[in-house]
Amino acid sequence: MKKAILAFILIAAIAAYFVFDLGQVLSLENFKASQADIVAAKDANPVLYITGFFILYVAVTGLSIPGAAIMSLVAGALFGVVLGTIIVSFASTIGATLAFLSARFVLRDWVQGKFGERLRAIDDGLEKDGAFYLFTLRLIPVFPFFVINLLMGLTRIKTRTFFWVSQLGMLPATVVFVNAGTQISRIDSTAGLLSPTLIASFAALALFPWVAKGIVALVKRSRG
Rank of each mutant, 00 (worst) to 15 (best):
A96F: 04
A12R: 13
S201Y: 10
K114P: 01
R223G: 04
G67Q: 02
Q112D: 13
R108G: 11
S189I: 06
Q167F: 07
P172G: 12
M71G: 03
G181R: 07
P141V: 05
S89F: 03
A15I: 14
F53P: 00
L119S: 10
L134T: 12
F132S: 13
V74L: 06
I38L: 09
N45L: 05
V178F: 02
L63I: 10
A59G: 06
V58D: 00
D123E: 11
L48P: 00
I70Y: 03
V74N: 01
K114S: 06
L73K: 08
R156H: 15
F18I: 09
F90T: 05
L48E: 02
L150F: 15
F53S: 02
A217P: 06
V47K: 01
A13V: 14
G23T: 03
W110G: 05
L207C: 15
I148H: 07
D129L: 13
V60S: 03
L48Q: 08
L26C: 02
R108L: 13
V39R: 06
Y17D: 00
R104P: 14
A200N: 10
K3G: 09
A121C: 08
G76P: 01
A77I: 01
I157T: 14
S166L: 00
T197S: 11
T51H: 02
F162P: 07
L168V: 15
G130P: 09
D37F: 08
I65N: 06
F54S: 00
G130F: 05
D124V: 13
R120E: 10
G52A: 03
F145E: 00
L48H: 04
R221I: 07
F146D: 08
L26D: 01
K32P: 01
Q24D: 08
L26F: 13
L107M: 15
L98F: 11
A41N: 05
A91C: 03
E29P: 03
R104I: 12
A15P: 07
G52F: 01
N45G: 02
E127R: 15
I184A: 05
A204F: 13
P172N: 12
K2V: 06
W110H: 13
G52M: 00
V19T: 13
N30R: 15
V88Y: 00
A16G: 13
A180C: 14
G80L: 10
L78S: 03
R221F: 08
Y57L: 03
V106Y: 10
T161H: 11
